[in-house]
Simulated assay, not measured.
Amino acid sequence: MRRKLRVAAYAVCVRDDQLLLARGFDDEGRPEWTLPGGGMEHGEDPYDTVLRELKEETGYDVEITGLLGVNSIRFTTRHRFGREVDRHGVRLVYEGRVTGGELRHEVGGSTDMAAWHPLGEVESLNRVGLVDVALALWRERPVTGRVAVEE
């Protein structure tokens, strides 16, 4: 079975009890909310990745105020021609504070819009599991840098 590793960096940005999210699409094309962030490019530092991805997906300049934790996910998918792929995602979750820029939507990327959502309403959104993991890290701030949240 083919193996694929993806390392990515994301940021939890909370302002006035609202969470900044970006909207992407699942495998069936349905919209779903996620944290702004994404995959590292070869040779890129995760810190630089999260700053770049936030700017690309939201238009904001962000100051990273801390590393909340690391989340690892593993699952199997089918590649073209029916071959199985053992996928392993390592996701670094930072806390960020917006310092400049203006909210705008990404053009030609993996997301199509960005928006602030009241924290109390996030649970009702169609969202990826990473959002729940990241909010748990943000709220609990575990010394281990990991939380037990089902995805």
Rank of each mutant, 00 (worst) to 15 (best):
K4R: 15
L5T: 13
V7W: 03
A8Y: 01
Y10F: 15
Y10G: 01
V12S: 04
C13R: 09
V14S: 04
V14N: 06
D16M: 08
D17W: 10
L19M: 00
L20E: 05
L20S: 04
G24T: 11
G24W: 01
F25D: 02
D26S: 02
D26T: 02
D26C: 00
E28D: 15
R30P: 04
P31E: 00
P31R: 01
E32V: 01
W33D: 06
W33M: 05
T34C: 05
T34W: 08
P36M: 02
G37V: 12
G38S: 07
G38R: 05
G39K: 14
G39N: 14
M40T: 07
H42W: 15
G43Y: 11
E44H: 05
E44P: 07
D45E: 13
D45T: 09
Y47F: 13
Y47K: 12
V50T: 04
V50L: 05
L51H: 02
L51K: 10
R52P: 01
L54N: 10
K55E: 14
K55A: 14
E56S: 00
E56R: 01
E57Q: 14
G59T: 06
D61T: 11
V62K: 12
V62Y: 13
V62Q: 12
G66K: 10
G66R: 07
G69F: 00
V70N: 15
N71Q: 14
S72I: 12
F75H: 13
T76N: 15
T77W: 10
H79P: 00
R80M: 07
R80Y: 12
F81R: 07
F81Q: 10
G82P: 05
E84F: 12
E84M: 06
H88I: 11
G89M: 05
V90Q: 10
R91D: 11
V93A: 02
V93S: 02
Y94R: 10
E95Q: 11
G96R: 08
V98D: 03
V98E: 04
V98G: 03
V98L: 08
G100H: 03
G101W: 04
G101K: 05
E102R: 15
L103H: 09
R104C: 06
H105Y: 11
V107H: 06
V107E: 08
V107W: 07
G108P: 08
G108D: 06
G108V: 11
G108E: 06
G109W: 00
S110K: 10
S110N: 11
S110A: 15
T111W: 03
T111H: 07
M113C: 14
M113A: 12
M113S: 14
M113K: 14
A115S: 06
L119I: 08
L119V: 06
L119K: 03
G120F: 14
G120M: 10
G120Q: 08
E121H: 06
E121T: 10
V122E: 01
S124M: 08
L125G: 00
L125Q: 01
N126D: 08
R127A: 02
R127V: 00
V128F: 01
G129Y: 02
G129T: 01
D132K: 09
V133F: 00
A136D: 09
W138I: 12
W138H: 13
R139I: 04
R139P: 04
R139H: 14
E140S: 06
E140V: 13
V143D: 09
T144V: 08
T144S: 15
G145P: 07
V147R: 09
E151S: 13
E151G: 11
E151F: 15
